Computed example of a mutant assay.
Amino acid sequence: MSEALVAGTFSIPVDHGLIIVEDPASQADHDDWDPFCEFVSAKPDSVYLSVRPSVDGPVEVIIVKGEGGHDRASSRYFEGAIHAKGLYLVIRDADDVVRFSVRCGPGENLIRIMVDEPGLVSCMVVMFLGVA
């Protein structure tokens, strides 16, 4: 790992092949997203990320505050801002088996997501880079 504050990590089989980073109050509609055509769907307050399905094994998610990385996660998957109404954003799977809250600022929060293999992600690093 590079210099960064590791906020948390989890490794789970992801039944629907979907990891979500969002404002807890998000009502964003990603119904028009086809994960077979695009691996990422971004709305102002949420990002949907295609990862490998549970039959292919677990997905490791590493959450860091600041610039950081992991040797296995070298491909940029997403970089942009997510709007938070409150003081938290969450990283979760579609079934809420895991729901990890990260304290951030209200407003536009800059994030960068790095992965090992776009589309069949087994390792993901979610970097919270601060308020825009």
Score class of each variant (00 low, 15 high):
27 Q>L: 14
113 I>Q: 03
13 P>Y: 02
10 F>R: 03
71 D>K: 14
46 S>P: 04
111 I>C: 05
89 L>A: 08
60 E>Q: 15
129 L>A: 04
17 G>M: 09
64 V>K: 10
21 V>S: 03
1 M>P: 08
25 A>H: 09
91 I>H: 01
124 M>Q: 08
101 S>F: 13
37 C>A: 12
63 I>N: 04
91 I>D: 01
55 V>A: 15
59 V>C: 03
94 A>V: 01
90 V>S: 11
35 P>V: 09
60 E>A: 13
70 H>V: 02
64 V>W: 01
103 R>D: 11
108 E>H: 08
114 M>P: 00
70 H>P: 02
77 Y>D: 00
104 C>W: 00
118 P>Q: 07
90 V>Q: 14
13 P>R: 14
53 P>N: 14
116 D>A: 07
15 D>K: 12
57 G>W: 13
10 F>S: 05
102 V>Y: 02
52 R>I: 06
130 G>D: 05
24 P>V: 09
23 D>H: 03
32 D>F: 09
75 S>W: 11
67 E>W: 05
32 D>Y: 08
50 S>W: 01
103 R>C: 09
15 D>R: 12
20 I>R: 01
19 I>W: 02
25 A>L: 14
87 L>S: 11
45 D>N: 15
6 V>G: 00
119 G>I: 05
132 A>I: 08
89 L>W: 02
15 D>H: 09
9 T>F: 04
21 V>T: 03
79 E>G: 12
28 A>E: 12
45 D>M: 07
65 K>V: 06
42 A>S: 15
13 P>W: 01
108 E>S: 13
7 A>F: 02
81 A>H: 09
60 E>W: 01
69 G>L: 03
1 M>V: 10
97 V>M: 12
8 G>H: 06
46 S>V: 05
50 S>D: 05
2 S>P: 05
17 G>T: 10
125 V>I: 15
115 V>D: 01
83 H>K: 04
17 G>E: 10
92 R>Q: 15
23 D>Q: 03
32 D>W: 11
50 S>E: 08
58 P>R: 03
76 R>D: 05
49 L>D: 07
93 D>N: 13
